[in-house]
Nucleic acid binder design. Structure first.
Lengths: 222, 222
DNA sequence: CTCGCATGTGTACGGTGTAAGCATACGGCG
DNA sequence: CGCCGTATGCTTACACCGTACACATGCGAG
């Protein structure tokens, strides 16, 4: 009553790049990356599609942006701890974040990734390796190796149905249709995936520790 | 003159799933995965888009199919060689194939992958590990670790501009725009990418050997 | 020869990203 | 206070996408 304008009660929060990215992340989390369309993001924000373009250049910028949002969720342990446990923690955190946003690992691998959050993370990891005493050259390769492993493992894990229920059903159908007995080792592997003890929790850390210890050995023998 | 029908000289090869997949691979190789549309594949084959549906159920089947095409290009060394060199060779071949079809690693990581070629490869690798004397459990994890590394490393390499020329240009622009001196280790890493001696050839095999030797050590101490 | 089915075509629908032009509302200025 | 420029949002439109559906055609089996 008091104000003539603004009869609507809603405070009308203005749009912003942050709000757009936030909505995009939410949408992707709920419906997968294919659910991300400019029109749907707009609807989520109670707005028309073209309005988004006042805050982002195009859809690519949104994709880059949500990867950055995800990257900024990754823990980078403060310095002081042993380098192996530090990298271990951040690797696990990276994996957790990527599993929390199942669409992210695909984008992470596809986009250039020159955003601040990813840059900060890369720098942190390189510094940690350097301060651990790895040579310049070894650090260069170690970085690639560790990153490859984290991304590769997580991506692979995401392709598999993670919920036990779903896994069992899919595995059964899969085992039935493949040439009977022709690929016994593969069959065995699928069966192992069904064993409850392989929750794929230990698997990741096992390989990670393998790599970290190898790097340490390389450092000490070089 | 002889035949009344078939005035056209062209023999009119009939369509087939194989021809469709072949065209799709060619198109993706030339223009990237985004260039793959039903209409464009059809045009490549001198046909209308809807005709493709007589040979494939939908676009997803095409995507699965071209990943299979790629997978079937991978070398699986015949048994007999040392297990480490066998896996080494096939890993390198896998990487080469994925680099040859830059769109493939994305699909490889995204699709379920229950095709014959991928299945055959998986089985081959698992068998090789088993015959190398790894335990059931260790084989299970070793498989994931090696696969993760191959896919992760290759994917990462693909995101970087591979041609020296392009790399140099991008790196320069990149280095200029990032907060000056704030991320020295990352800067150093980018610089290392520019050094000719890091053609990323050795890098892949270095990490690979690291992993294989670690697995061997695990096998012998278990 | 004829019939039926496999193969290819044409059209249409709902979806996509985004270019261009228009409406409006708000902040800084006189 | 009033004005105005600019930032923000809306509308319309275009080209392209995957594919459902109805139809044309030609070839092989009876």
């Amino acid at each position: 009553m008091a104000r003539k304008t603004n009869a609507r009660a809603e405070p009308r929060i203005p749009l912003s790049k942050d709000r757009v990215l936030q909505a995009a992340v939410t949408l992707a989390d709920e419906g997968g990356i294919d659910a991300l369309s400019m029109r749907r993001i707009a609807k989520e924000l109670g707005v028309e599609a073209m309005s988004l373009y006042n805050h982002v250049a195009n859809k690519d910028e949104i994709l880059d942006g949500i990867v950055e949002v995800v990257a900024s969720e990754i823990d980078l342990p403060s310095d002081g701890a042993d380098w192996k446990t530090a990298i271990r923690q951040s690797a696990i955190s990276t994996r957790d974040v990527l599993l929390r946003h199942p669409w992210a690992s695909g984008l992470w691998g596809t986009r250039q990734g020159d955003g601040l959050a990813r840059l900060r993370r890369g720098d942190w990891m390189l510094r940690t390796l350097r301060e651990a005493g790895l040579s310049k050259d070894l650090t260069y390769h170690a970085f690639h190796i560790v990153e490859s492993y984290i991304l590769g493992f997580t991506g692979q894990q995401l392709n598999f149905p993670h919920e036990g229920e779903e896994l069992a059903g899919m595995a059964e159908k899969f085992l039935q249709q493949l040439p009977a007995g022709e690929y016994p080792d593969f069959v065995e592997h699928v069966m192992q995936h069904l064993e409850p003890r392989h929750g794929d929790e230990g698997g990741f850390e096992l390989g990670l520790d393998l790599i970290l210890e190898s790097l340490e050995r390389l450092r000490d023998t070089a």
